[in-house]
Design a binder for these strands. Structure first.
Lengths: 136, 136
DNA sequence: GTAGATGCAAAGTATTTGCGACAAG
DNA sequence: CTTGTCGCAAATACTTTGCATCTAC
């Protein structure tokens, strides 16, 4: 079975180069939210000739094609993750940087309502919670 | 009556230089969310000798002192606004870039609950809604 | 008087781009 | 074949910093 990302590329008419296949594979297998540097490192282990410029170009392309989601969490570098059906938001441990994904439909609904209240249709949103682990 | 920002500086033991007073004044009078460039332009009209390095240093200092809030909305540059009692989130018009401030206590409460559910104490959060204006 | 602030220009980061060589459809 | 991609290095955009000078307290 081909990777979901590859399937999406074909659907969107995105040319499937070797480099893109590798980046797709690495992203599919990543359960975290790598930034471009991290992604570049992982990709380099498979093909050391891939340049970081290609990684930047590819994540941008994948983002525009709805294949990856880009996040600008606090701390500078953009982070990416594969975009699946299930939308989710993030809870970030401010001490360790650990990222927990969560879904809360109640909040989602309320967001739509807020946008509507101001005469807007919600097209996107970003919700990040920053917390510290409680003892015990 | 002195500016709220100046009062806060004194409370926090932040030295009140002429440059900081000007930046404080400009931010107090701004009803939008200027980025550093915009702020620098406004500040330059009052004192053309202020350097952009000072503006960067000052907004960072003010942010750390709880005087300004920094936002990394989509589109690269960080934007700042004065931090008052009333916390609020942002609804951003994706076509015009217009920013609407809103408060929704129900969402705030749910956020706390979500964090607790995962064993975290919420210390900060970011909620941005992106929308398009509805016809009618 | 002294610790801390400023201006300037140089240095960092993160990301983008021009260009000739190359590969997918 | 032809259009789009790649690798490289140079360029850009935003932000930070070293240092000598200056200023608030």
């Amino acid at each position: 079975m081909p990777l979901t990302i590859e399937k999406k590329c074909i659907e969107k008419g995105v040319k499937l180069t070797d480099q893109r296949k590798i980046i797709a594979k690495v992203m599919s297998e990543s359960n975290d939210h790598p930034n471009v540097d991290e992604l570049y490192n992982r990709v380099s282990k498979i093909d050391s000739k891939i340049s970081i410029a290609t990684v930047y170009r590819t994540v941008k392309l994948f983002e525009e094609s709805g294949i990856l989601a880009k996040h600008d969490f606090k701390g500078g570098k953009a982070r990416y993750e594969e975009l699946n059906e299930g939308h989710h938001d993030h809870l970030i441990d401010v001490k360790t940087g650990e990222i927990i994904e969560f879904v809360d439909n109640e909040i989602e609904e309320l967001q739509k309502k807020v946008a509507e209240k101001y005469g807007y249709e919600l097209v996107d949103h970003k919700l990040e919670l920053y917390g510290v682990k409680k003892k015990s």
